[in-house]
Amino acid sequence: MLELRLLQGSLLKKVLEAIKDLVTDANFDCSATGFSLQAMDSSHVALVALLLRAEGFEHYRCDRNLSMGMNLNNMSKMLKCAGNDDIITIKADDGGDTVTFMFESPNQDKISDFEMKLMDIDSEHLGIPETEYEAIIRMPSQEFARICRDLSTIGDTVVISASKEGVKFSTKGDIGSANVVCRQNTSVDKPEDATVIEIQQPVSLTFALRYMNSFTKATPLSNTVTVSMSNELPVVVEYKIAEMGYIRFYLAPKIEE
């Protein structure tokens, strides 16, 4: 038996919007730790890891570890039927082939339940090693989204170069080229507006902008984004989910032949 009650239902709606275009089908894993997901995109270039910790739910009952295969487009359709202020409860029976999403309006005058069919998904679970990254950039998530969107109108790939002087986003295309440099800036009124660059050594990596743009669909989840890089390793683009956990996107770099 599984029963997870989330007071801030809009968080789950935002999570689905953040991942549904990258991943078609995925297993949601439920354990004593929390509600989590790990999935790759169809071409195995990117990986998304989601964690919503048990403590973040108002009520969290998970009698035994459960893996529920869901089509994310269908799940998104159902969650779109929940109001932004609704409380969402996820319910499932052990060994059942459906999951139920229950939506309660804030003043309890409307209660809906939507039952969705589960599916069997054969997915590989990858071990993500703990890594000390050589460059960690924290910046406003909207600024990062803006840069990715702007550069993708010029080129298909972005070179992200981080050094003590700042972080440079560069692209080239048929019509020309573009560079955006962000310098460390901590003299801001609100901490979430700061750009903080921690560098062990300079890093320069090339990525497909199509994926970066897809990751920025998680922008509504957090005011800040953290981009962690090491030479010749996948980048991690992380959006923290307040009080609950995170959504992390891993993207394999483009490598010169």
Binding site: V45, A46, L47, L126, I128, P129, A252, P253, K254
Partner: peptide, 14 residues
Amino acid sequence: DAQQGRISSFFKKK
């Protein structure tokens, strides 16, 4: 041209 790496070549199967 640079070649796109795959995530599964960096992270091992559990």
